[in-house]
Design a binder for these strands. Structure first.
Lengths: 203, 203
DNA sequence: AGCCCTATTGAATGCTCGTTCAAGAACCGG
DNA sequence: CCGGTTCTTGAACGAGCATTCAATAGGGCT
């Protein structure tokens, strides 16, 4: 319950500000006023603004399960349903933000056009972590999915569905765009599950 | 062959700069040096920077078929193949830019967090136009697709696949992410076409 | 108390940005 | 060739930006 240290306060404030305003549109002054710190304190901990971004991306990477995946999977055991539970969590975030929600990683990935290699690598790692969580579900689904299915590709496709749905929902300010994307993915899974069942049934 | 007028030169330069560097990272000075114009000339035509953005988005909207769709569809008549021909064009763009390609509209949609209503509407209209082109293909495919299929949703799903694939390909600097997304969408279409054929065959 | 190292303060710096505007050039109808 | 309008020039402005740093405070050790 003790006050978090300076570094943590900065990272948490920057996390939210980068998410709401984007990286370039967030000034150091924004972070300072939000954290009630002075410029020197920030620059004592971080060499520069980009290093704050790096710390934010590391925080997303390290908090993936704790902050996003585990809450979404609470009370959901079926591996396939876990995938859609995670997507449902994003739907909730969209509603909670009046359809202004944007995936923090996706937004940063598209905003930073000439990103430093370290930053780009962290963006990629964040995507890989997310896809890894889905991949775990697909592995757990075992032979309910067709044999020979490229599970890595399918896991990436789930991320694609989320990112595309979030992007369109925000642009149109309408969850329907997200819902229809998830619905299409659901059809995709249903067809895959049906195909696997058809092969398994006639033993 | 005569030199294009000032407005056109500005819009064309801004189109490329916004695409390469993003909106916020492109300065008026960038546009001026690229067009060899002076500040006064730009401000004589446009009230401000945002109006340049609006003109750029209108140009994308108005040039959708001429600059993107028609070239992609040249020599491709089958409506379903036209969808994948359009995606193939994006694949080519990704390769042409060494996997740094980003959809101009998608990038702007995620970069502009607190966008003016006019700008947001134009972003939405651009998406709608793109989806409309896909929808036309789906309609042309007629009863090759299952009856009762939500074609609007499927068309949006194609956009989702493109945006998600482009985003991941760029972040990982690897076309494979785009290819696997398209491949998953191909599977999706194959399964839909097979389902429709199964229903039609046993007359 | 005295010392040293770490942490904080907040004004100052230099830069870039979008935008303005008075002055002048180019154009055109009569 | 004149008068009026449109377009261009390019310096100037003020605001906001990331970053620096000398001065100061705090905390732990002897």
């Amino acid at each position: 319950m003790s006050a978090p240290d300076v570094r943590t306060r900065i990272v948490m404030a920057a996390m939210e500000l980068f998410w709401v305003k984007g990286y370039n549109s967030t000034s150091i002054a924004d972070i300072l006023s939000r954290t009630q710190l002075n410029a020197g304190s920030l620059y004592h901990v971080f060499p520069g603004k980009q290093d704050v971004l790096i710390a934010v991306l590391e925080a997303y990477r390290d908090g993936l399960y704790e902050n996003l995946v585990d809450p979404a999977w609470e009370g959901v055991d079926d591996p396939v349903e876990r995938i859609f539970a995670l997507l449902a969590r994003y739907r909730w975030l969209i509603l909670e933000t009046d359809c202004t929600y944007g995936c923090p990683i996706g937004s940063l990935a598209l905003e930073l056009h000439e990103a430093d290699p370290v930053v780009r690598e962290l963006l990629a790692v964040n995507f890989t972590g997310w896809v890894g969580a889905i991949l775990r579900c697909l592995d757990d689904a075992g032979d309910r999915l067709p044999p020979g299915l490229d599970k890595q590709a399918l896991a990436e496709f789930v991320l694609t569905t989320m990112e595309g749905g979030v992007m369109q929902a925000r642009t149109h300010r309408d969850v329907g765009y997200f819902d229809r994307g998830v619905s299409a993915l659901r059809d995709h899974f249903d067809m895959l599950l049906a195909r696997a069942a058809r092969r398994a049934q006639p033993a």
